[in-house]
């Protein structure tokens, strides 16, 4: 097996004295889509923050494509091919669509290429290119965010709660885009609360609770246990 694109070993992280990650182990093979599931407060978003360089771990190691990265800044990682789409609105609401796209060129792609990719995948963004991103619907904002994943041609894509606050129809569209990106060979780690939606596009899945990964496996195996984990097992 080739070197995994992301390898996390015994990762701990804390907000002040409050430990949120308690020894996370997780591997994303090259070219695979891994779904990271789990209830609220399990530490999923914190894990993504540590991987993307927004937060410093207290101990443990992260290897990106076999390279040990500790203390790298988010902007450096972004320029090296790690694209992170954080939870919630990951666009700049007071900039127009086109200005948002312009900033995506910081990842090392020419602005024209960004525009071309974004508009060809999402013609709706072209119609709205002079509109402020914050005045678009949540789904359109998320499309704009996904445009960055498409245009920046990442080595590893981190997606956090793509579906938050969005209607299922829109979520489905977004996940079709995720599947398309995956087909081009991009490795993806997707954090999701809608287990079934995420599992449909993933090759592997992991479940986090209480700051550790408690289960890993094929999507079908994980799907079988998710209802218990999220809605409670007590009948």
């Amino acid at each position: 097996m080739s070197v995994p694109i992301l390898d996390i070993i015994d990762l701990h992280a804390a907000y002040g004295r409050i430990e949120v990650l308690r020894g996370v182990n997780l591997t994303v093979p090259k070219g695979a889509v891994v779904a990271l599931l789990g209830p609220n407060g399990a530490g999923k978003s914190t894990l993504l923050k540590v991987i993307s360089g927004q937060m410093q771990q207290t101990s443990g190691d992260i290897h990106l494509a076999g390279i040990h990265v500790t203390g790298a800044k988010p902007d450096d990682l972004a320029r090296l091919g790690l694209t992170t789409i954080p939870e919630g609105r990951s666009v700049f609401p007071n900039l127009t669509v086109e200005e948002n796209l312009l900033l995506m060129s910081y990842a090392g792609v020419a602005p024209e290429a960004v525009f071309d990719t974004a508009y060809s995948y999402f013609p709706r963004l072209h119609e709205r290119r002079f509109q402020l991103a914050g005045t678009m619907s949540g789904g359109e904002q998320q499309m704009l965010a996904m445009a960055r994943a498409l245009a920046s041609d990442p080595a590893l894509l981190l997606l956090d709660e793509l579906s938050m606050g969005l209607a299922p129809l829109i979520v489905d569209e977004l996940y079709e885009t995720v599947a398309k990106i995956a087909e081009t060979g991009v490795s993806i780690l997707v954090v999701e609360q809608f287990a079934r939606t995420a599992l449909r596009v993933s090759d592997y899945a992991a479940v986090m609770t209480g700051g550790t990964v408690v289960a890993t496996g094929e999507p079908d195996e994980i799907n079988a246990i998710m209802a218990d984990v999220i809605l409670g097992g007590a009948a």
């Binding site: 919630g88 619907s137 299922p168 129809l169 829109i170 079934r196 939606t197």
Partner: peptide, 28 residues
């Protein structure tokens, strides 16, 4: 169940989805 787990496996075509508003998001 649907709200919590996303789509059930029978696909997206349910009538009740149409009435759900498209513009929705919590601002932290």
């Amino acid at each position: 169940q649907k709200a919590y787990l996303g789509y059930s496996d029978d696909g997206p075509a349910g009538d009740d989805t149409a009435v759900l508003p498209l513009v929705n998001e919590e601002v932290v």
